[in-house]
Simulated assay, not measured.
Amino acid sequence: RRLFGTVRARGRRIFITVDDRRTLYTVSAVFRDVPRDRTLRPDLLAAFPQAMKDVMPAFHIWESSSGQIWLRFRSAADANALAAGLPDFVRRRASMPPQLQPGWYKLALMPLLDAHFRDLHLYGGDDDGNSTDRRVVDALQIVGVLALVAAAINYVNLATARAGLRAREVALRKVLGATRPHLLAQFLAESILLLIPCAVLGLALAEIALPFVDGLGGWSVRIDYLWLIPRLVAIVLVVGIAAGLYPALVLSGYRPA
């Protein structure tokens, strides 16, 4: 829109200047805005002509760190074979200044999934606004775990305090022949069933709060339900048993006499 006044820019021409070299390009495609949670968020993609590659320092000087090389391998064995040859490649190719010790330059492969959180350290911090710090994600995760632990402790306290109100129920169940394992199973099942609507409510609140969280952090976070639902079921079972075990032991151990 800024360059041509329209989004229908295919076939239009534009001059791009890099290192004082002016090159004429033809627009071949226009892509949608890239979401903020992507590792690469380019505004414009253009191929370097061979003439530009021959004279640009970034392609010939080892001190240059501007740029990334992306590789695709058929198998992990191919990736390992290339990684094993990188040290020898540097020894043969790198023209190091005399003041630098051997081994100063190093090349290594990084899995694509790791690149999203490593860019903060590899490409000059957060100057470009796209770098992602893993510690931020870990901090949010720790806050969530602590909140869950606090809620479980609170539930244990409330359930234990209410144990006295169910003394008559336990006494009547035992008089009618209920055993302690039966009562334990009942109270643990109650604990798990109580957590199910709580989990659904928590999920709904997370969906409602997500736009506000995105606005505060400048993110584009979305809930992946295929990933979340099995883990949410596991959390309900684990927390339900862990939080309901002590109150269940107290209630099932009540002696009617």
Rank of each mutant, 00 (worst) to 15 (best):
L194M: 13
F73C: 02
V145A: 08
A161H: 11
G244M: 06
A51W: 01
P256M: 05
L82C: 04
I223P: 02
A234T: 11
L148K: 01
G202M: 07
N130R: 14
R13T: 07
M56D: 05
Q99H: 12
E207N: 01
G217C: 13
N154Y: 13
G85M: 10
L188V: 15
K106M: 06
V18N: 08
D133F: 12
V149E: 06
L251C: 03
P181W: 10
F187W: 03
R36C: 01
W104M: 10
G67C: 06
L232H: 11
A242R: 10
A51V: 10
D224R: 15
L82S: 05
T39R: 04
A242K: 04
P87V: 06
R72G: 11
P230Q: 04
A46I: 12
V90Q: 02
A84W: 09
D214V: 00
A84E: 14
L120Y: 14
A108D: 12
L188E: 10
G125T: 06
A83I: 01
K174T: 03
L194W: 05
P181T: 08
H116V: 03
E207W: 08
F15K: 07
L113A: 15
V149C: 09
A209Y: 07
L109W: 04
A46M: 13
Y25K: 06
S66F: 15
A79H: 02
A150F: 14
V27S: 08
T6P: 07
A77F: 05
R10W: 00
P42M: 08
L122H: 05
R10Y: 00
L172E: 07
V90G: 01
S131N: 12
F31L: 13
Q141G: 15
G67Y: 02
G164S: 11
A189D: 02
V149F: 06
A108T: 11
L176T: 12
R91C: 10
R92P: 03
V250N: 00
P87Y: 03
F4W: 14
F73D: 02
R32F: 02
L113N: 15
K106F: 01
A9M: 10
R36F: 08
A51T: 14
D214S: 05
A94M: 13
R180N: 09
M52L: 15
E190H: 12
D43I: 09
P247W: 08
E207T: 01
D19W: 06
D119T: 15
S66G: 11
R10I: 07
V30C: 12
A171Y: 02
P256F: 15
V7I: 09
L188R: 12
F59Q: 02
R222T: 15
A150P: 04
P49I: 10
T132G: 08
H116P: 02
V18Q: 08
V233Y: 10
D133C: 07
V213K: 01
L228R: 07
D126K: 05
V213R: 02
Y105H: 01
D33C: 04
H60K: 15
G129C: 01
L226S: 14
T132W: 12
L82P: 00
L122W: 05
H121C: 02
A46H: 10
K53W: 01
D20Y: 09
G244A: 05
